[in-house]
Structure formats: structure tokens, C-alpha cells
Amino acid sequence: MREIVFDTETTGLSFTGGDRLVEIGCVELVHRVETGRVFHAYFHPERDMPAEAQAVHGLSATFLSDKPRFHQGVEELLAFIGDAPLVAHNAGFDFGFLNGELVRLGRAAVCMTRMVDTLQLARSRHPGAKHSLDALCSRYGIDRSRRVLHGALLDAQLLAQVYVELTGGRQIGLTLVADEVDGAAAASHAAPAVARQVRPPRLFAPNEGERAAHAAFMTTVANPLWGVETAA
């Protein structure tokens, strides 16, 4: 099964309030294993960058000034995500901006049935605990030392690891049948069957010679604590 884990960075919290998407990072999973294929793009927001948003992700208006507009990269983005389920943390936020940009261009919104929210998964699996991406990385021993600021691709890569853990751990990627990944057969991880040879039963009763040798040895023991067996 193919899934896309993604994250966005924006100019603020509300697309309907005038904020825009400025970065998106996507990571491809097949059977919950990263394939190495990613999509990453920055977009010119066609507006200013509020200081509070820049403090979160570090993307300034100057940095974004020469980046393409969303409509210039939308085809490549849609081709990458295809019809796969889309996994995000607090996914309603990311879907809101992605669909907001698509609808703004007159394109069809991504169906919400494709949404997988790792925040909801974390709340269900770890009730009462902290559920931020940082907290989940710490819980599962995932290295987040490079996460000084928020970044869409880095956060998507971290979230992909968290998602695997939330859905059963790394062993979930082991499949028992071959599958197709980009047209190439994925190798099965199933161990080959090994025929076991059954060893015939061994007889442990002493033979007559052994019984006689034992009886002879016991005659040399003074005052034995056990009975002396005589040869048959």
C-alpha cells in the first residue's frame, strides 16, 4: 500500500483569513517503508511574511521572493501524491491549506476520506501524554537533533518514522508476498521454509557389558551408600 506523509509551512494559521502555503514536503511510503522518493517545494506566498510565522519556520519574504507561485508547481505535486492516503500531524490544518490553494486555482480539493491524522492516532494510543511531533520523537527514540526550526520536508521525514511506530512498529514493513514498487518487484521478506530432519529416538538403557563393568566397579567401593548391582 502506498501512502504519502506530508507537512506544510504557511504564513499563518488561517487560509480563509488570508494566509498562504509557502512550503510543502512529502515522503513516500510503501507498506510503511520509506522508498526514498520525496517531493519538496517552496512557494512565493504573494503576500508579506508575518514575523511570528517566520520565527517558527525561518522562511523570510526575501528568501521566498524568487520561488515559484503555487500554480506553477501544482501539477508536479499532484502527480507525486497521486491517489494515495495522505498522512499529516494535525492533518486538518495541512489539508485546509492544501485544499485552499487547490480550490483557489479552480482545482478539485483532495477528498477528506484520504486524510490520516497522526495526532488523533497518538491521542488514541497514548491518552494523557504529550502528542507534539517533538514529544512523539522522544517517546520512540527518533533523532530530531536537526529540527532547530520547523521545516516541511524534515518534519515529514520525522513524522514518517513516528507514523510507522504508531501503527505497529518497524516490523510492519516486512511483507510475506512480493509487490510492485515503481514497476519493480519488491523482494519478499519471508524466510524460506527449511525441512527439519527428525532424529530417531536414542536408547539409554545399559547393555550387558556395561552392567557387568558397573558391578565390578562397585566391588571396589568400600561401604557404598547404595546397593551393589550384580551382573546378570
Rank of each mutant, 00 (worst) to 15 (best):
M1S: 13
E3K: 14
E3G: 06
F6D: 00
D7Y: 09
E9N: 01
T11H: 07
F15S: 00
T16Q: 15
T16I: 10
L21A: 07
E23W: 03
E28V: 02
R32Y: 13
T35M: 06
V38N: 10
H44K: 11
D48C: 02
M49F: 07
M49K: 02
P50Y: 07
P50I: 05
Q54S: 13
H57D: 01
H57S: 01
G58Y: 12
S60I: 04
K67M: 11
P68V: 04
P68S: 05
V74T: 03
A79H: 13
I81Y: 03
G82E: 15
G82R: 15
A84L: 08
L86N: 02
H89Q: 07
N90D: 12
A91K: 03
G92A: 10
D94M: 06
F95L: 00
L98V: 14
E101V: 00
E101A: 03
V103L: 15
V103C: 15
A109S: 15
C111D: 15
R114K: 15
M115H: 05
V116G: 03
T118H: 02
A122I: 03
R123E: 05
R125A: 15
H126Y: 15
P127R: 11
G128R: 13
G128M: 10
S132I: 11
D134G: 04
L136R: 10
R139V: 01
Y140G: 00
I142F: 06
R147K: 07
V148N: 12
L149Q: 10
H150Q: 02
H150L: 03
H150C: 02
A152N: 01
D155Q: 04
Q157V: 01
Y163E: 01
L166E: 13
I172T: 14
T175C: 09
T175H: 04
V177A: 11
D179K: 12
D182F: 11
D182Q: 11
A184H: 11
A184S: 11
A184K: 13
A184R: 14
A185Y: 05
A186N: 07
A186P: 00
A187L: 15
A191M: 14
V194A: 12
A195M: 08
V198S: 12
R202H: 00
L203S: 06
L203M: 04
F204W: 12
A205R: 13
P206M: 05
E208T: 03
A212Q: 03
H214N: 10
A215T: 03
A216K: 13
F217D: 05
T220F: 07
V221Q: 09
T230V: 09
